[in-house]
């Protein structure tokens, strides 16, 4: 049987026009347009492209709700087995649109999506877990190869075949951990890896190290004596009784508590953080979140003021994803409150 594929392209690959047409509202054509044609030929008898959605990159990003609705309607009408978007190469807005398609179609409508991007495309991070994102070159010069890989993977996806490892099949790792059986136990594999490393031979870690984050340093505070400074901790310091039920490990939320007029956290706060001996922090929470000294420096005039709320969560076991969310939310509040800097303490 032949499977049905719906294709998504932008105004350029949809042969409508260049930047001047980037604001075009989505349309759907029954024909195969641009890369949809090449993809359709590669799929041969196995699948047919039953329609091409063409949408301006600016339109998708600026009128997201409308674009989303259009795609949902088109998918309901065409009822495809798979949706293909792009490849977007290194085109940022196109990549974000393809990621948007992945979100709606794969995440919400539960129809598999395949797309293609260059490794630095900003759409990659938000789509790689939802769709199969084939690794492409940075420009459309790599179209032929991208479509070949995409069609190979699409065929497997449609037939319900298991995909191989990302590096073998040419798509970006989705961040999934799978259980696999090995004929050697962990200690043997570790020793083999170690020996290979000693001998300068190639070896492959089973748990790649995360890439270190780089953040542009914030400018120094020119006049500390006028600065409003906030206290933030991942040490799990909360008011006695933990009123917001912040988790003691793998935190799902953060809290903020009013400390206006307090010279120390002693007596009213304690720690709910798992994994470290809480005796010392419970005795004197300022050992984790040093309000006492911040207040002292405020009184001395070294700093302008201590922000009236302090922010807290639990660090242990908390996912990087949640940590990024917490950090962004807390940072936004501090910025809106006119806070100049934060002292972040970690246990």
């Amino acid at each position: 049987m032949s499977y049905k594929v719906l294709y998504y392209v932008n105004q350029f690959f949809g042969q409508v026009g260049g930047e001047d047409k980037a604001g075009m509202a989505p349309v759907i054509k029954d024909e195969k347009v641009g890369p949809a044609l090449g993809f359709d030929q590669l799929m041969g008898e196995d699948a047919e492209v039953v329609g091409t959605i063409i949408c301006g990159d600016n339109f998708f990003n600026e009128n997201n709700e409308e674009a989303v609705k259009f795609i949902i309607d088109a998918v309901s009408e065409k009822n495809p087995d798979l949706v293909v978007a792009g490849p977007a190469f290194n085109a940022g807005r196109y990549g974000m649109a393809c990621a948007g398609v992945a979100k709606i179609v794969a995440d919400e409508l539960k129809i598999p999506v395949i797309t293609g991007m260059y490794e630095e495309n900003p759409g990659l991070e938000t789509s790689r877990a939802k769709a199969i994102v084939v690794e492409t070159t940075d420009s459309a010069a790599g179209m032929k190869k991208a479509l070949a890989t995409m069609s190979d993977l699409a065929r497997k996806m449609l037939k319900g075949e298991k995909l191989g490892y990302p590096e073998d099949e040419g798509y970006f790792a989705q961040g999934k951990r799978l259980t696999v059986f090995s004929d050697k136990r962990g200690s043997e594999r570790a020793v083999e890896m170690l020996l290979a490393r000693f001998k300068g031979e190639e070896f492959k870690s089973e748990l790649p190290m995360p890439v270190f984050d780089r953040v542009a340093p914030a400018a120094a505070i020119k006049d500390l004596s006028k600065a409003k400074i906030a206290l933030v901790t991942s040490g799990g310091i909360v008011p006695n009784g933990n009123p917001d039920r912040i988790q003691s490990a793998s935190a799902q939320k953060w809290g903020k508590y009013n400390i206006a007029g307090k010279d120390s956290l002693e007596g009213e706060f304690y720690t709910i953080h798992g994994g470290y001996d809480p005796v010392y922090a419970n005795e004197l929470p300022d050992r984790v979140a040093p309000l006492d000294m911040m207040r002292k420096f405020q009184k001395e005039g070294l700093i302008g003021e201590v922000y009236e709320y302090f922010y807290t969560t639990t660090g242990t076991g908390t996912s990087v994803g949640n940590s990024i969310t917490f950090g962004s939310e807390i940072g936004k509040e501090l910025k809106e409150a006119g806070v100049d800097a934060a002292i972040l303490t970690s246990t």
């Binding site: 995360p210 010392y280 050992r287 984790v288 000294m293 246990t347």
Partner: peptide, 19 residues
């Protein structure tokens, strides 16, 4: 360092960083 902190003050111990 791994999370990109640019100004780091090393502290005393995990259960009592600032004490």
């Amino acid at each position: 360092e791994s999370v990109g902190a640019n100004r780091i003050v090393p502290t005393i111990a995990i259960p009592y960083p600032v004490g």
